[in-house]
């Protein structure tokens, strides 16, 4: 089992390296550079091409791409993402607060989504084929089909414009106190939760049904174990295992999934920072955010794998045989 875990870990490192190369190449093929965005039309109107080239040289934009990549990567592996191109500001300073804000929003969403999705999925699974299941299934399909920005806009119109309970636009600062952000996070959180609950509850429903049909549940029933005990003590825990991977990916994806909702509400998170970094061609910031996202996905997936290995005796024995 230990060997399997080491193998998975090494594979994850390789994946991260490939992601770093891919993100770097993706930013390289984008047209223009940070200086191009930095200079205004007014600047350009009175500058010569030689002036612009001199500035480009001063900023190190004429250094060959492979050198820039390995310089960045050697820092990134020890947590130093370097500095921004134009302003020479440490990237850690730029992404620290947006990262915390996004993690906070992600945590709120996850904490609400998981139990709600679990309850809905289990309810639909238990009464599969009946009216409750039909209602839940239809509702979740609708919830899953509507894009976040549509849900967000509708919520804004209802709860910020018509009934002014919440702000339509979040104007809190990047460094806002967590409680200040919490107070204005309800609409963005609900926007994301609707889609996520719909998605996860369908997965959990399928897992629940599969477990309910399994041999050990049948044996428990034949042994006279009360139905409530079967559901709470056996089916519910067992039905989580098939969805662990999906849940891990979901949790890791919460951050990247927040980009849309952060844009709609102006939430000061990592998504807005990423959009801005792409717009301003601050490739080191883009690389850092993309790299962090990739690390999160890989680590969560790794944890899910370990959890499955540890929790599921079938997988454990299969891994041991190999």
């Amino acid at each position: 089992m230990l060997r399997a875990m080491i193998r998975r870990t090494l594979l994850s490192v390789l994946i991260l390296f490939l992601v770093a190369i891919f993100v770097f190449l993706a930013t390289e093929v984008l047209p223009g550079d940070a200086l191009d965005v930095y200079l205004s039309e007014d600047d350009v109107a009175v500058m010569t091409e030689e002036d612009i080239e001199e500035m480009r040289h001063d900023l190190g934009l004429d250094i060959p791409a492979p050198i820039r990549f390995f310089t960045w990567l050697s820092g990134a592996v020890v947590g130093d993402f370097g500095v921004t191109i134009v302003d020479q500001i440490p990237i850690g300073n730029i992404i620290f607060h947006p990262l915390l804000n996004s993690l906070q929003l992600g945590a709120i969403i996850t904490l609400i989504t998981m139990p709600v999705a679990f309850a809905i999925g289990a309810t639909a699974g238990y009464w599969r084929g009946q009216r409750t299941d039909a209602v839940v299934s239809t509702t979740t399909i609708i919830g899953y089909s509507i894009p976040d920005f549509v849900i967000g806009t509708v919520l804004i119109i209802i709860f910020a414009v018509w009934i002014p309970l919440f702000p339509a636009v979040i104007t809190a600062y990047n460094k806002a106190h967590p409680m200040e952000l919490l107070a204005v996070s309800l609409l963005p959180a609900i926007t994301v939760i609707i889609g996520h609950v719909a998605h996860l509850s369908r997965l959990l429903r399928a897992g629940f049904i599969e477990t309910m049909n399994s041999d050990f549940v049948e044996r428990a029933r034949l042994s006279g174990v009360p139905e409530r005990r079967i559901v709470w003590r056996h089916v519910l825990p067992a039905s989580v295992i098939p969805t662990l991977n999906a849940m891990a990916l979901y949790m890791a994806g919460v951050l990247s999934g927040l980009i849309v909702v952060e844009k709609v509400f102006g939430y000061p998170g990592l998504g807005i920072e990423l959009i801005e970094a792409v717009d301003t061609r601050e490739v080191h910031v883009v690389q850092a955010i993309a790299f962090l996202g990739a690390v999160l996905v890989v680590v969560m997936n790794l944890l899910a794998d370990f959890a499955i290995i540890a929790l599921d005796p079938r997988v454990r024995s299969h891994v041991s045989e190999r």
């Binding site: 806009t153 804004i156 910020a160 414009v161 002014p164 636009v169 959009i275």
Partner: peptide, 19 residues
Amino acid sequence: VVYQQSMGSAMNGFRAKQF
């Protein structure tokens, strides 16, 4: 002064009397 990334969000803020 509040920077808005889109006209839509600025209008939402105006209609909600934030701006």
